[in-house]
């Protein structure tokens, strides 16, 4: 399903999409130790992260120099953009336990010399994205994120959207529940953003939370691209 977005994507690193996905699968810290319900923490799968990052680093001919990953969690999207050839990725999250896992993943990548990750800079910042993100406007070319979907705190995903649009100069790649597509589009238009759904992704949310009764639940999620110039 997500592969539909991959054909126009040009290769930016020495790794193929499948290789990026397989390296992401090999990261030692892909699961949250105790996922926090209030933060809607769940892991972005290697399959989705590899493809979203491929979109994010493939804008008109050039790999972005700097990418910020908001709500990075265990750092899957940040790791994916680095594996696709982006030299600087900064992950921001409010939860330091998640960031420690992300940092371990980054160290693991750096030690795997075959993937040349020593080329890349990955760093982690504990901060509240919505309330006082400690980064200057227009610091990054691209922002990527799999934000909390706002089922616990209403519209928090759109608050992430707004912050991402202030931090990036070129584009934001972000994911929101497909059920909110019309609302997201209206809101984007009102803000004057050039926003487009690139793909519909099926998220397999594992039953990591007690209130999920099924073993896992498929949720339809849109991958959005916001063009900022």
């Amino acid at each position: 399903m997500v592969d539909a977005i991959v054909p126009g994507v040009q290769k930016r690193s020495s790794l193929s999409l499948k290789q990026v996905e397989s390296v992401l699968c090999s990261l030692p810290r892909r699961r949250f130790e105790r996922p926090r319900i209030d933060l809607e923490q769940y892991v972005t799968s290697a399959h989705v992260a590899a493809r979203v990052a491929a979109c994010a680093v493939s804008r008109s001919g050039e790999v972005p120099e700097r990418v910020v990953d908001l709500g990075t969690g265990t750092g899957m999207l940040a790791a994916a953009v680095v594996l696709h050839g982006c030299p600087v990725a900064v992950g921001v999250d409010v939860d330091v336990d998640a960031l420690r896992l992300a940092r371990e993943n980054g160290q693991h990548l750096r030690r795997q010399s075959v993937h040349k990750p020593e080329h890349s800079v990955m760093d982690w910042i504990q901060a509240d994205v919505v309330d006082g993100v400690p980064l200057s406007p227009k610091t990054f070319e691209v922002a990527v994120m799999n934000p909390p979907f706002g089922t616990r705190h209403r519209a928090v995903d759109m608050a992430f959207w707004d912050v991402a649009c202030t931090l990036a100069t070129d584009a934001v790649y972000t994911m929101h529940k497909s059920s909110t597509r019309e609302y997201v589009l209206r809101r984007a238009r009102r803000a004057g953003h050039d926003a487009q759904v690139l793909a519909e992704v099926r998220f397999d949310l594992p039953a990591s939370y007690r209130f999920h009764r099924q073993a896992s639940a498929d949720v339809a999620v849109d991958l959005w691209r916001v063009r900022l110039r």
Binding site: V121, W124, I125, D128, G132, P134, L135, S136
Partner: peptide, 29 residues
């Protein structure tokens, strides 16, 4: 955290650049 990343940071309250102080541990990789 590398100094490259430090160069991007501002204080979340006052939006000003932050000085590195009281360094206890560094790693040069």
């Amino acid at each position: 955290m590398r100094l490259l990343t430090h160069n991007l940071l501002v204080c979340p309250v006052h939006r000003e650049a932050l000085r590195i102080e009281q360094v206890r541990e560094l790693e040069v990789i």
